[in-house]
Amino acid sequence: SPRFIALCCSSSSSSDEEEQRLRSELRQRFLWTLSVMRDKLVQFDMHERVRVRARFGASDIDVLRFQVSDLETPLGVQREALLRCQDVLSCSFEL
């Protein structure tokens, strides 16, 4: 999986160590982003130019699904939902 490739490095040469250091720095910043995003009203741009809003809850570790609350869809408000990240092109929120 992408996470296995990202987190498990078989050899330990100095260039690999440097690569792993960069991975961990980038990942840590991404985790900060998710924690800032929590409980924020987030706009999700999906395929076919569909745009929905919801309160962001969490992401799974592989960034395959987002858990959201009060998802505003064209068919009504869904109290709790999981969004497949493959269906999401981008998401944005204000600080």
């Binding site: 982003t33 800032v36 995003m37 960034v63 990240c85 493959q86 999401v88 092109l89 981008s90 998401c91 944005s92 929120f93 204000e94 600080l95």
Partner: peptide, 11 residues
């Protein structure tokens, strides 16, 4: 206010 946009890697 500052805004944050996450563009999913697959896209």
């Amino acid at each position: 206010r500052p805004s944050v946009t996450v563009i999913l890697g697959h896209a």
